[in-house]
Simulated scan of single mutants.
Amino acid sequence: MELTPTEIERYQRQIMLPGLGEEGQKKLKSTTALVTGVGGLGGTVALYLAVAGIGKLILVRGGNLRLDDMNRQILMTDDWVGKPRVLKAKETLSKINPDVQIEAIPEYVTPDNVDILVRGADIAIDCAFNFEERDLLNEACVRWDKPMVEAAMNEMEAYLTTIIPGKTPCLSCIFPEKPEWDRWGFGVLGAVSGTLATLAALEVIKVITGLGQPLYGKLLTMELGSLHFAKHRPYHDPNCPICSKITQQKINQTLNLVNTKTNLSISV
């Protein structure tokens, strides 16, 4: 997918980055990203993907904007309180970068829509407010072999990882027992959700373009009150009810490929 003269001018400063260049920019343009939970976290992720030149955004979030969302949801305006927030997110992002295609779906992630959503995207960013939606997205991404950037926060703490089906631990491996999580039960500072969101957007860009080193098989934890960052290697459960089957399939495919090459070498 070629870049227009306008796009080359718009993105010229990031095209200058070693490891990205025009080829990386073309990869961004040809990518469709699914963002769930378009709030203080997901909305900011969508913003930075839009200004970076992602080709298409699919924004998924049910419910209307509340006044107590306004301390962190930077795509919103005060006059939109009481209306579907995902529609305002589309409007704002379209004004910021009209070259990005944006589809706004004012629904929550459910068993009925998750497969259609994931199949229509190249990568998913999980910013949902509960583990029910997060688990649904994780299962669908594993099922359809789509990468997923997982980001979540609680008060001043946050975590981030990238899930590649069959290669890294999935969300079920990392959290086999789901923590209690009340979306209105903890405080939220906009700068905290924004910090995590920018890192998540950067992770998406790295996965798409090959820039830098994504968090494959690593969990980044952050305690932003003290600015303590740490990387962990979460357990990749060989018996995970969600991802173990696809992991074994990829191992078998690799072994078959190695055996085929070995047999060819012997024959020669």
Results as ranks from 00 to 15, higher is better:
Val81Asn: 08
Glu133Met: 06
Arg119Leu: 14
Leu75Tyr: 15
Val38Phe: 01
Met148Ile: 11
Glu132Thr: 12
Thr209Leu: 08
Thr260Tyr: 07
Val268Ala: 06
Val207Leu: 14
Asp135Trp: 01
Leu28Ala: 09
Arg10Ile: 04
Ala89Cys: 06
Glu9Gln: 08
Leu196Lys: 03
Asp182Val: 05
Gly190Gln: 12
Gly40Ser: 05
Gly225Phe: 10
Tyr216Pro: 11
Met153Trp: 00
Phe175Ile: 11
Lys146Pro: 13
Arg66Phe: 02
Tyr235Gly: 04
Ala140Phe: 14
Ile15Asn: 06
Leu28Pro: 12
Cys127His: 09
Gly190Ser: 06
Thr4Asp: 04
Thr262Gly: 00
Val142Trp: 08
Gly42Trp: 10
Lys231Gly: 10
Glu9Trp: 02
Leu255Trp: 08
Arg183Gly: 01
Lys178Leu: 14
Met16Gly: 02
Ala230Thr: 08
Leu17Pro: 12
Thr32Leu: 05
Leu41Pro: 06
Gly40His: 07
Asp115Glu: 15
Ser226His: 05
Met222Ile: 15
Leu93Ser: 04
Gln73Ala: 10
Gly82Tyr: 12
Lys90Ala: 10
Gln249Ser: 07
Gly42Val: 10
Asn64His: 04
Val100Leu: 06
Gln101His: 00
Leu255His: 11
Ala50Tyr: 03
Tyr48Met: 03
Val142Pro: 14
Asn113Glu: 02
Leu93Glu: 07
Leu65Trp: 09
Asp126Phe: 10
Ala124Tyr: 14
Gly212Pro: 08
Gln25Ile: 10
Ile102Asp: 07
Ile105Met: 00
Thr31His: 07
Lys245Gly: 10
Asn71Pro: 04
Ser94Lys: 15
Gly210Phe: 03
Pro176Trp: 03
Glu139Asn: 07
Leu219Val: 13
Lys146Glu: 09
Pro176Phe: 02
Asn256Pro: 00
Ala46Pro: 04
Thr110Gly: 10
Ile58Leu: 09
Asn71Trp: 03
Ala128Cys: 15
Leu160His: 04
Pro147Arg: 05
Cys170Thr: 11
Val207Gln: 14
Glu23Phe: 00
Val100Ser: 07
Ile242Val: 15
Glu103Trp: 00
Thr247Cys: 05
Leu3Arg: 05
Ile105Asn: 00
Thr110Ala: 03
Asp78Ser: 14
Lys95Asn: 13
